[in-house]
Every structure is written in structure tokens, then in C-alpha cells.
Design a protein around this nucleic acid. Sequence first.
DNA 1: CGAGAGATTGACGGACGTCAAGTTATGTGG
DNA 2: CCACATAACTTGACGTCCGTCAATCTCTCG
Lengths: 251, 251
Amino acid sequence: MTVRQDIHSSGLPILCQSCEARHRGVCGALDPDHLVGLAKVSSRHQIEAGVELIGDAEAIDSYSNVLSGVVKLTKSLSDGRQQIVGLQFAPDFLGRPFKVESEINAEAATAVSLCSFPKAAIERIMKESPELEHRLLKQTLNELDEARDWMVTLGRKTASEKVASFLLMIARNTDSSIDPAARSASFDLPLTRADISDFLGLTNETVSRQLTRLRADGVIRIENKRHVTVDSMNRLEQRCGGRRARQPPFE
Amino acid sequence: MTVRQDIHSSGLPILCQSCEARHRGVCGALDPDHLVGLAKVSSRHQIEAGVELIGDAEAIDSYSNVLSGVVKLTKSLSDGRQQIVGLQFAPDFLGRPFKVESEINAEAATAVSLCSFPKAAIERIMKESPELEHRLLKQTLNELDEARDWMVTLGRKTASEKVASFLLMIARNTDSSIDPAARSASFDLPLTRADISDFLGLTNETVSRQLTRLRADGVIRIENKRHVTVDSMNRLEQRCGGRRARQPPFE
DNA sequence: CGAGAGATTGACGGACGTCAAGTTATGTGG
DNA sequence: CCACATAACTTGACGTCCGTCAATCTCTCG
């Protein structure tokens, strides 16, 4: 389906006028001509939790922007062990340029809305507009930084540090993004316990135990299994196994 | 130090004529003019194992190409726990564009030779030459793929699968790159046992035990602690905890 | 030869996985 | 409205893989 648009209202496709991706996402790199051209072949989708978006070893024929919700990227071993290797929030760009086949699985972790484009359209624009590649490079570098941070978490942190780090990451990617320095936060977990364990390299039992420990220690409160309140972000951060501070100046 | 060059011999700076990075590395993206300009301000360095190249929280003022040897990228927690988050081989590009400060430590794991450029020079050329950004994007995407593969290893594999996976990765990045389908391989480990454990999220004792187990089982032979021979890559691969194969077509 | 770093091997303990039972939340149909 | 089913979650008991600590061995280099 292609969405109706009124180019005269402001030079922008109606589809894009209120779209977050046009500012913070990759579409911000496009001039009006490209945006109009792209909007003609793009389409919005509402997807419910649990639906697979990109299958492992499937051909990729489209890319998307995440407009709301959370998408989980997973990899699996042959015996069923699974690892979440990334989470994508709005307005992230979803898809792996320059590869015909995905080595990754993408699945809606929550209800998700996407704006999808044919692969060919993006790649044509990419050739004409260096600014688009520039944005993609920046996002990819950010994802690489995040992946490397999680490698530290996966390889070197204890179970309780892992769970605390996960909560901190979610808190920073949701409503508390309104105020990054907020001293408290309240949010819904976008993942089930099983998903969280796949993200942290643990079992759901261990995740559950660590959450109840955090609750017993007064670091978090939990309502309805999914809603988490953090009164003191400081206390939560202390449980994450901090990054190395600068060395003291004199040995 | 800036190396002498003879532009007349072929239009290429002498420094670059025999350089691997000019073909497979980022320099392959540059036209002769840019290459000449860059060569004027670039310099080669020989660095011995153990030297720190980029410190955590240090200002970044130069980028480099790795010409030979192996560079390890590490992150640390405040109590000293350390994780290697990436290895760079020739002809990888070393450095994090668009950030004033590194959040990562880079250290020569073996003797290394680098070709370094001032940060400003690269960034100027990047603005003029979209092809350079294109190469950087491709390398960054590859590094992201690798990082995500290691996340599976860190989060979901057993100690013996981790060690086998590590050996396989090293085998594929060294002399066996001559023949990617080779059924056997022989190479020097670029990392100490302690480094390997920091890479795999283990202790050096566990790494050592797994290596002796692989040796006892006849999968590998070890000479002089560092030199490894793999007679059957197949047998090694079987110990890596394979990736999921395609689902059987009917259910 | 001696010193020191790196590596190996063993004994032991603890953190986390496994297995299993029980609880809560949500929906479904009578 | 209640009985029931199902999925997600919690909690406990127990076992094991891997970390910790310590002794010994092997190289390399002065």
C-alpha cells in the first residue's frame, strides 16, 4: 500500500510531516526531492509483538525505519541456544546494507510500527546522496559502540550486574529520555524474562531471581510483572559494575 | 616523521606503491590526488607488542591503517576486569571517526606496523570523497557483524566451544587466508593465554585446560606454547557449536 | 645459571544452570 | 460469573561448569 500525500502543503509528503525519523533518523539526510521520491514507494505497517520481520538466511528486499516499539535482533546456534545481539528503538534504521542475505533474525519484541522502503530505492538514493551514507555510518558506529559495551557485560559481569545494566539501558531508552539526567525513572519492560535472559546470556530463572533481589533491596519496584520503577538511578548505576575511571594522576 | 616519496614514478607516492591498504583497505577509495595529499602527512611506525596505541578517555588526534600484526581493542571495568572487544588485522582502519574521545583502549597484541594520518586530514578528505565514507561504512558494518557473532560466543557458548571458535577465527585471519577452503591450518597465536581469556570472557586457567583438552583429543597440536596446527578444520568446526542450519522445509 | 613471565595442572568452592513445582495473569467458553 | 487452559513468572533443591587459589613447569633473556 502506498499512502496518499499532498506535496503542496509544504513540499513534504504528508506521510513524513510528523515523522520522527525525518529529524533524528536517516530521513533527515534527504533533500525534499529525494524524500518525495522515497515517500511514494514507502509504506507504514503496524506489527504485533512476536512477529518475525527478517528471517535468518532470508533474502533482504526492504529496509525500514522503526517508528515506535522495540525490535530485537537475534542469532541462534543449531541446538536452539539463542542470543539477542541488539535492540532497535525509534528512529533506528533496520536492515543490513550491501548484503543480499541476512545472517540475523529480527522480531518485534513489542507492538511495532515501521516505515518500509524497497531495497532498490534506498540504494539508488544512497548513490546520489552522500549525506545518507554519512547518517548510516554514524548510526552503524553507534551500534558498534553499543555492541562492544554489551560484550563487556556478557563476558565480564556477574548475573546481578547484567540485570542492573539491562534495566539501566532500558530506562535510558524510554520515557526517561525526556530528561537524561533524571534521578528516577518508570517504564514498561519491552522484553519478557526469557528475552531478557537471551539478551544477557542467562536463564530466565536467574533473571527472575536477580529482579526479586533488586526489589528486595529496594532498588526497584515492580507492578504487574512488567512495569518497573527506579527511585534512585544512582543506586541502580552502582550495581552495574562501573566503567574504569581515569587513572589517578600519580601512579 | 614523514617518509620521502617520488610522485613521478607512477603518480603514486612511493610509500603507497606496495601498500596492501591501497587495495583492500580504505586507501583504495582515494583518487591519486587525495592519495598524494594524504601521503605527505602520513607516517609509518613499527610498534612492539604490549604498547598502548590509544588510551581510554584520551583525545584522538590521528587515525591509522594496520599494515601488519594484530591490534587488540579492550574495555575495562573499574575493578580491573577486562574484555577484548575486537581484534584488528591488516588492512583494517584503526580509530573512531566523529568522536573527540575514545571509550576504548587499543594495544599492540603482537609487533605491529601502522600507517598513521592526522585526524584532520582524514576528515577533510572524507568531506570531499564519498567513496572514502563508503569504504568506512562497509568496514564498520563488517566489524558490527563480527561483534555480534562474538556476542553469541560470549553469551551462549561453553568454555570449550569458545576456545575452539577462537582458534577457528585466528586460523581464518592468518596464513590460511591464502586458501579459505583449506582443510588444515598452521599459525602462531597472536595472543597470550591471558589475552585469549579476556577475549572469551574466561580465565587463563580455563583457556589453558581447554587447549590441552583439544590437544589430548587430537584436534590440534601445539609447539612452543604459541604455534598451533590444525589437521582437520572440520573437526575443529564441529567443536564450535554450529550456527543454526536452515529449518527443514516441512515443519 | 638464575630471574621472571607465561603456561600448566590440581584441589576446592561458588555462581549459575537444570529440573521441577507452584503462583499469577489473561483469555476462552460454558 | 465461574471453570478451565495457557503462558509468563517465581521459588526451591540440587548439580556442574568454571573461577579461585596455589604449586609446579617451561621458556626466554640477562
